[in-house]
C-alpha cells in the first residue's frame, strides 16, 4: 500500500535544548508517501520535538532531515499541516476566518479561499458553524476546526501532536473514526504523535515506538488490519491482540537504557 519512496527521512537526528535537556538522540525515521504512521512513547520522550523538527518549527542539534520526493523542499508554506495538542484557534476570529488563515497569510485569492474553507469545513462536519466563534464550540468541535485549518492548504503531510489527548473518550473515538475516513478520502501522509496504545493501534498502518528521553526509535510494529476500520474493529480480538503486542513493546521501550 505505502509507496517505497519516503516523503521525509530523519537521519540520526538529535536535539539538545538550551537548558541542556537531551530530547532526541540518533532518531532515524522514514515516512512513506500516503502512510499513516504513529509515534508512540511516554510523555517527554521527544516525540513532539521530533514532529516540530519535521515541521521546521525547531532545528535539530545534529542529524539531517531529507525530503527526497520534492526538489523544492516540503518545508514550503502550506505543504505541511500541523494540528497541535490544543485547538490553538484565534478566539477573536470566526470559525471560517480561523480556517482561512493559512490561505490568507499566503495572500490567496479570497473567493477561492472561501470555497476551499467551505469544502474543508464540510469535510469535518462543521458546515453550519462558519460564523461561530471558538468559545461557542465544544472541545471536539474546536479540534475539528483545527483539523480543517490544517487541511485547507491540501498539505501532502499532516502532522498531529496528540490532538485528542485532552478530549473525553466518546469524542476521541468519534474523531478517531473521522480522521481515518478523512485520511482515506484525502490520502495525505499522516504522522500522528500519541501516548495512547489504543489510539495508535486503531489509527495507524505502522507504529514507531520510542524510548524515554533522549528519544530514539526502539521498535516498529506494523498494524496490518485492513481499512476501513470502524467501531467493530475497535471491539475485535484482532485489535485487542495488537494492543497487547504494542503494549508489551512499549513496556520494553520504557526499560531500555540508552
Amino acid at each position: 500500500m505505502a509507496a517505497a519512496n519516503p516523503i521525509v527521512s530523519l537521519r540520526a537526528v538529535g536535539k539538545v535544548f538550551d537548558s541542556g535537556t537531551a530530547a532526541l538522540d540518533g532518531l532515524d525515521l522514514d515516512v512513506r508517501a500516503g502512510e499513516f504512521v504513529s509515534l508512540l512513547g511516554p510523555s517527554g520522550c521527544g516525540k513532539s520535538t521530533a514532529l516540530r523538527i519535521v515541521a521546521g518549527l525547531s532545528k535539530p542539534t545534529n542529524g539531517v532531515i531529507e525530503w527526497p520526493a520534492s526538489r523544492a523542499g516540503d518545508a514550503a508554506a502550506g505543504r505541511i499541516g500541523f494540528v497541535f495538542q490544543e485547538p490553538t484557534l484565534m478566539p477573536w476570529a470566526s470559525v471560517a476566518d480561523n480556517v482561512e488563515l493559512p490561505l490568507s497569510l499566503a495572500h490567496a485569492d479570497p473567493a477561492k479561499a472561501r470555497l476551499a474553507v467551505g469544502a474543508v469545513l464540510d469535510h469535518v462536519g462543521l458546515a453550519d458553524f462558519t460564523a461561530a466563534y471558538p468559545r461557542e464550540l465544544s472541545g471536539g468541535m474546536k479540534m475539528r476546526v483545527s483539523i480543517a485549518r490544517a487541511l485547507v492548504t491540501e498539505p501532502r503531510l499532516l502532522l498531529m501532536d496528540e490532538p485528542f489527548a485532552a478530549l473525553d473518550e466518546i469524542t476521541r473515538f468519534k474523531l478517531n473514526n473521522d480522521i481515518l475516513s478523512l485520511w482515506q478520502t484525502l490520502r495525505q501522509t499522516v504522522i500522528f504523535v500519541t501516548h495512547s496504545v489504543f489510539e495508535s493501534v486503531f489509527l495507524s498502518q505502522r507504529i514507531v515506538v520510542m524510548t524515554p528521553r533522549p528519544g530514539r526509535v526502539f521498535a516498529e510494529v506494523a498494524i496490518d488490519a485492513p481499512y476501513p476500520r470502524d467501531d467493530r474493529f475497535r471491539t475485535s480480538a484482532e485489535y485487542a491482540g495488537y494492543c497487547r503486542k504494542v503494549g508489551e513493546v512499549l513496556a520494553a521501550a520504557m526499560d531500555a537504557r540508552p
Binding site: 516540530r52 515541521a55 521546521g56 518549527l57 514550503a76 508554506a77 502550506g78 505541511i80 500541523f82 497541535f84 490544543e86 490553538t88 484565534m90 477573536w92 476570529a93 488563515l101 493559512p102 497569510l105 499566503a106 492548504t153
Partner: peptide
C-alpha cells in the same frame, strides 16, 4: 500570545507584519 499560534504563523511563513497585525495586536 499563545505560543502555538506563534508556531502556526511561523509554519505558514507569515511575515513579521502579518504576525503583528493579525496575531499580536488582536491578542
Amino acid at each position: 500570545v499563545d505560543r502555538n499560534l506563534v508556531a502556526l504563523f511561523e509554519l505558514y511563513k507569515a511575515s513579521r507584519w502579518q504576525v503583528l497585525t493579525r496575531l499580536k495586536l488582536p491578542a
